[in-house]
Write a protein that binds this DNA or RNA. Sequence first.
DNA 1: GACGCCTACTGAACCGTTACGGTCAGGATG
DNA 2: CATCCTGACCGTAACGGTTCAGTAGGCGTC
Lengths: 341, 341
Amino acid sequence: MSNAYNRPDQLSAPLRARVLEAARRLGYPGPDPVARSLRTRKAGAVGLLLTEALSYAFRDPAATGFLEGLALACEQAGQGLLLVPVSPDHVDVTAVHQAGVDGFVVYSVREDDPHFLAVLERPVPTVVCDQPMNVEGVDRVGVDDRAGMLALARHLTGLGHRRVGVLCMRLAAGHNDGPADAERLASITYPVQRERLAGLRDGLAEVGVDWETVPIIERFEHSPEAGQDAAAELLGAHPDITAVVCTSDVLALGALKHAADRGLKVPDDITITGFDGTPEGERVGLTTVEQPLREKGRVAGEMLLERGDRNKPRHVLLPTELAVRTSSGPPRREERFFSGW
Amino acid sequence: MSNAYNRPDQLSAPLRARVLEAARRLGYPGPDPVARSLRTRKAGAVGLLLTEALSYAFRDPAATGFLEGLALACEQAGQGLLLVPVSPDHVDVTAVHQAGVDGFVVYSVREDDPHFLAVLERPVPTVVCDQPMNVEGVDRVGVDDRAGMLALARHLTGLGHRRVGVLCMRLAAGHNDGPADAERLASITYPVQRERLAGLRDGLAEVGVDWETVPIIERFEHSPEAGQDAAAELLGAHPDITAVVCTSDVLALGALKHAADRGLKVPDDITITGFDGTPEGERVGLTTVEQPLREKGRVAGEMLLERGDRNKPRHVLLPTELAVRTSSGPPRREERFFSGW
DNA sequence: GACGCCTACTGAACCGTTACGGTCAGGATG
DNA sequence: CATCCTGACCGTAACGGTTCAGTAGGCGTC
């Protein structure tokens, strides 16, 4: 009996020594963690569910910021962090069923994500980060995406921009690389994207810009390369645009690259903005909406682990901050004239 | 009996339906993953052990590169990735004992790391990345750090550099921020650092530079801030240095920052080099030794998961490549004279 | 010396699943 | 009609640890 390992106070030193000696002789490798977990009903780990392939967690700077905060909370509580392998190709939920964890953190997944539904069926507490929103009985931490984007929109309209184009990430299930038409916009299943676009729409409406006329280019992949490509598509079809609003820093980084390739000076020839506040964006002077990424991860972890009072689900909204840097400026004089000044 | 969930072929459709219906009515949440793990002796996850705090995994760009590759291998095999929480402060090995995993990947830890010793006691396969080296019966993947640094050293001596200073990361247990004296260098417990320094020593020896005269500044923390600080210490004490060799890109990034603050032009006034080949380094034109970070992670994961033939431990050494960019150049003319030309 | 209490230790039940062997019904075959 | 075989279904043991009730023995007290 391996009280010897866990309750040194419960048995005398000589017996303990004898037990340990015998264990060593028999090659006993110490208590089995899985059996212990079964008995104690504690796995000592938190599961993390992403909407993307697992490796995405280490590729997207916004995700790594969040995860750094989450890892911080976990290590303080002595809990492990289990990255649940989701297969992007064919839908296979078994990994969610397999995960031996005491709770789940769900990071920014689609409303109808089958993996997420599988998580909800598990009898363990769950915290959602960002999306989906408004799920019955589930804690959530996020930021006010709409207000953040509204502030950015006002910054742009204040500079005089009227002809704006948008680069956004995946809006719903299905592979749509190209313009997002009205139908697509009506069926968004990534609420964060919906909110950010709504904030932009509201801000543009304040100066009389018709949302229907604003071109929106969607990309399935979320990477600088996709942003670069999308920027090419946007500016190819709408060369009169004076500002490119991206719903993430990653896409904006790609847009900056495209502008440089095309010989456009930022912000003199074109304004480019992001969203998230990643270190990369800061380094290149990207005007963006900063959100407290690490903090968000930390709060998500703490909400899941503390959870002493499981009264009603808690919803935490963290503040965003408009970071005006060098990638935004007034449109050229002739553009201003063109747009009605 | 929950054959219904796992072996749909073993029982007829109507019975299966009845069982599932009854389960639903009783609120049965599906088979318990922990009990399943106990019975099948498979946890469906790989443990990751770091030498640093857990959140470090998401902060260090070299680590994230490695982890991206590792995550890729895991998700392809349908395995989870469990980040084991190690407490940097007081030594607590219980987390290693608690981890319900089928194997461990150990990333770049000290030779005498107590967590690592705990991992070795666990009766599961283990793969080490980078360090420690030459552990009995343990697979390892790494790069030829010594050869990589030798190539870099020759590049520098070829440019004419003779007065070189070094910035390196932690060399052994204990908090030493400052010069690394002979005693410290003799008791290095991070073999990677030992190898990289040895490569530099060999390269300098080829042109007659006495290793004893080369100042080496050590930092406990591994961050750009630490690099910046260490560069200030190095150049403060040895203003005649023409090249700062850093044992990582992260430190080199800090050194570049310090050079800029001090008004030194790179590479005209001073040459700064790194090691690793991170995206950040590439973006700022850092001359460095590139290693295939993602590939290293992928190989580590595959070695652990395939492991069909557990004959003898395998050791894989991946190639490095010298990346000469804009942070290295010949020393100033007067410096060349000074150093004996 | 009997009683009771406290400590050190032992034994058995239980966590929830899977693997495996046994039972039983029903159809095919001689 | 008896026998054999097959497939569906069910019961049970074991995985390895924790927990808790129970027991033995030592010692103090009246």
